[in-house]
Design a protein around this nucleic acid. Structure first.
Lengths: 213, 213
DNA sequence: GTCTATACAGAGATAGAC
DNA sequence: GTCTATCTCTGTATAGAC
């Protein structure tokens, strides 16, 4: 079996590969702009310009702005799913949650991509009716909820909070304005990351001297 | 001194009073819409319609959308200042911070007004160059930082965090997406409020068994 | 499928009468 | 100061040639 046939296992034609690569480039650009400027402020022109194609060409790939940005968010969730699945096996539940938090916040500090879209945007509405997104988020939630439950039974996380609440407390950090506020005050990314993770997790972990009710 | 002269102490003419009342109504409507829909999504037409006046009339009061929404946010900060100033004198620093958090979150759950504008909106930029807003926020920050410092020396709050960081951790809750996420999952406002305050403060308070470094 | 050029709609802002 | 009617610009989306 030579290199060519190895690379083209399910026989995607070169054309199809290019097509896919182009779409990936578009989604990536859309992700970045979505993160930097938000759904309402970003423009399709900007996305097209960033990729280096004409706007009309972009509309051959995606039906509209909503469709494009939905794809971008789904792409982000897929990355999150991959991250969750690839975590080293030797981490205990709490370490996994810590790693998750780190990953979410680092993403927000870099200008890469958006997970939680702004509550007010039209995109939020589009996502609510997007099956792919909803099922992906459901799986992510289940995955994390499993760890939360484990950490709770292991006595690492507070048992007086519903797992749901802990899940939300963690995921919500990916859009926490605290990071931007600290940035404005001149702090460095490393400090910010450490503080946000610390203050968030400290509110969730089971304290040594805590009295259970 | 009769009633009339009492009511019109600094002699604001009826006309001026009406003018002021009208502007207040406009700002109030803008605040609510800003909170519900965000800066980019809301329209000046909606504000005018909510107040019951024509859009052109609104433009006699405010120079533009930025100006109007800036006024709305400043109005909100002023309310916050009043709240801070009117807290009962018998509360200790930590109780004050708790009350502050409660106030901020309740505001977010009701659909009233916006304090932190979305990071991406054009409004955020406008506020950055608005002296009135900046100085008001500075005073609010100083006020709260004072309580934080007191709570830290009293051993109520963690001393390993800069007061700045604690301040941000508290204020950022006013735009925490965690509330919306919990709402979507069907929880009631009272539960949500309690959990967010709990998880936030638990990460900041000095734990009984904590070892200082 | 990619381009240039254009149609169309929405929203911010203004003109001018009253 | 308030109104109706209008201007103007921007951004989504499409038409049609290649």
């Amino acid at each position: 079996m030579d290199l060519m046939s190895t690379l083209s296992q399910p026989r995607p034609s070169f054309k199809a590969q290019m097509h896919r690569a182009r779409e990936d480039a578009i989604v990536e650009a859309a992700s970045r702009l979505l993160r930097e400027k938000g759904f309402e402020t970003m423009t399709v022109d900007e996305v097209a310009a960033a990729v280096g194609i004409a706007k009309a060409s972009l509309y051959k790939h995606f039906a509209g702005k909503d469709d494009l940005c939905t794809a971008a968010v789904v792409h982000g969730v897929a990355r999150l799913q991959r991250f969750l699945g690839e975590l080293p096996a030797d981490l205990d539940p709490l370490q996994r949650l810590h790693a998750l938090l780190y990953w979410l916040l680092e993403l927000q500090l870099g200008e890469e991509m958006a997970l939680l879209s702004e509550r007010t945007s039209a995109l939020a509405q589009a996502l609510r009716t997007c099956d792919v997104y909803q099922s992906a988020m459901l799986e992510v939630s289940r995955h994390i909820l499993g760890w939360v439950a484990q950490a709770q039974t292991a006595g690492q996380l507070r048992r007086d909070l519903p797992p749901d609440v802990i899940l939300c407390a963690l995921l919500a950090r990916s859009a926490d304005p605290m990071l931007a506020m600290l940035r404005e005050r001149g702090y460095g990314n490393a400090e910010i990351l450490a503080w946000v993770i610390d203050t968030c997790l400290s509110g969730l972990v089971q304290q040594p001297g805590h009295i259970e009710t």
